[in-house]
């Protein structure tokens, strides 16, 4: 029994090979992109819209709202990245229930790839938002002594992202496989039903954590900038308490 689909090599030429993880990723990509293309090529702006268009609008709007709630920022910049994370992981996890389909998210390579993408995206969004100096300044907050811990925090949260998703999906697959050999009729079905919930929740958790990391990378600088502005104001009005004094943890946005 293969724990990870990486081990199922379908084609190989010297060191280059194609495994099930890649193939099923392409399947998921084909389903997502093909479905989107079929539905969005005949979009209408009338009052009555097709139900598939309505479904896509609901999905996109819900993701948008979740991003806005988590970040408190303009969601349009983060929508393609966070939305694709969510849809890809969700589709992979749900398609796992189709016999013969192996979820790419059950591969540590896939989750690592996604975690690396987030790991890279966080500073990129932070730099795009605050500039490179503003972004790097958060590593010495609240004091330069914390810089090693901040860097370790960045690395560990990336690893935890990868391992959390991989562990949940892989374990679900493994448990179903084991139960199939022990009690082939009832428990695998229950576990698969549970897998639907687990897969959805994991997709949501991964996407939202990614958003929170990106938001924290941009919000830290915003907080620093807001407190600087408040200090300037307080120097003009010494008797008036600053906003940061009243709500030290509040989001300035």
């Amino acid at each position: 029994m293969n724990i990870t689909p990486d081990q199922s090599i379908l084609w190989q030429w010297e060191w280059l090979h194609i495994n099930e993880t890649m193939v099923f990723t392409w399947v998921v990509m084909f389903v997502l992109v093909g479905g989107s293309w079929i539905i969005t090529r005949k979009l209408t702006i009338e009052a009555e819209i097709p139900r598939w268009q309505n479904l896509l609008e609901v999905i996109v709007t819900t993701i948008n709202d979740q991003i806005s709630d988590a970040s408190g920022k303009d969601s349009s910049r983060y929508l393609p990245f966070i939305g694709t994370l969510f849809l890809y992981i969700l589709s992979s996890n749900l398609l796992e229930n189709i016999p013969g389909f192996v979820a790419p998210t059950g591969s540590l390579s896939t989750t690592t790839a996604l975690a690396i993408s987030v790991f890279v995206a966080v500073p990129l969004f932070g730099i795009a938002n605050d500039g490179i100096g503003g972004y790097l300044k958060q590593y010495i907050q609240p004091t330069i002594l914390m810089m090693p811990f901040n860097i370790i925090g960045e690395l560990t949260r990336t690893i935890s992202l990868a391992v959390r998703l991989y562990g949940n999906i892989m374990s679900g697959t493994v448990i179903v496989g084991i139960l199939l050999s022990l009690t082939p009729f009832f428990f695998p079905l229950v576990m698969q039903l549970l897998g639907l919930i687990t897969g959805t929740v994991q997709a949501y958790i991964f996407a939202m954590l990614a958003m929170v990391y990106i938001a924290s990378a941009t919000a830290a600088h915003d907080k620093t900038r807001a407190s600087a502005i408040n200090k300037t104001k307080n120097s003009d009005e010494p008797n008036k308490p600053s906003e940061s004094d009243i709500k030290p943890e509040s989001n300035p946005n």
């Binding site: 990486d6 990509m29 992109v33 393609p80 694709t84 790839a113």
Partner: peptide
């Protein structure tokens, strides 16, 4: 596989942005 998945993911981001 990690490299291929990163590329796949970035391509998927671009495609979904384009078509969705």
């Amino acid at each position: 596989t990690v490299s291929a998945q990163i590329v796949n993911f970035l391509v998927l981001v671009w495609l979904l942005k384009r078509f969705l």
